[in-house]
């Protein structure tokens, strides 16, 4: 029983319709995004199901997950705060921003807050160099950019995420 295929029947049909019928594997990345919405990362079962839908080997599917940075095969924070520290952002204080933010949260880049809410990641250029310091927040719902940030504004964003999770009655 392919749970992904059952749950997202219509959405998968819409994705498949974008590509020629004989090139089902073109849908692998859209399907990985779809599956990642469920848990925030990709389980072995999800990769197996996507392999069946796209008629690929499961190792090939896993190699796609491994290659692209926005796919995750391990659970992390519910929200991944991805701070750009590439050259243009670093010229406008991004390294110091990340360091001070991490000090405030008591975690290192790559780590997750003890409540599992937030993981801080250091990432490469996000195409917002003129509005640094900046970061994106990746969550099961999608991606949001936050620009012209300070440690104070970032902590407010985090407080907002925490409040909305508590509003949902979540564990965070």
């Amino acid at each position: 029983m392919n749970q992904l295929a059952t749950k997202y029947k219509d959405e998968i049909s819409r994705i498949m319709a974008k590509y020629p019928p004989e090139y089902r594997r073109s849908a692998v990345m859209p399907l990985l995004y779809l599956a990642q919405r469920e848990m925030g990362y990709l389980t072995d079962e999800a990769m197996q199901e996507i392999a069946e839908i796209t008629e690929m080997g499961v190792t090939e599917v896993a190699s796609i997950v491994g290659f692209y940075t926005l796919f995750h095969d391990q659970p992390g924070g519910k929200y991944r705060m991805q701070v750009c520290t590439d050259l243009p952002c670093a010229l406008r204080g991004a390294d110091r921003f990340l360091e001070e933010l991490c000090q405030n949260l008591g975690i290192q880049p790559g780590e997750t807050t003890p409540d599992g809410l937030l993981q801080i990641e250091e990432v490469k250029c996000l195409a917002a160099c003129h509005r640094a310091p900046m970061y994106q927040v990746q969550s099961p719902e999608g991606l949001t950019f936050y620009e012209h940030q300070t440690v104070e504004s970032a902590l407010e964003v985090i407080a907002g995420l925490r409040a909305s999770e508590q509003g949902k009655g979540g564990q965070a």
Binding site: K18, M29, Y33, F67, Y68, T69, L70, F71, K124, C125
Partner: peptide, 8 residues
């Protein structure tokens, strides 16, 4: 449209 997933 087709989305990549983080690879320069």
């Amino acid at each position: 449209t087709h989305l990549g997933a983080g690879a320069y």
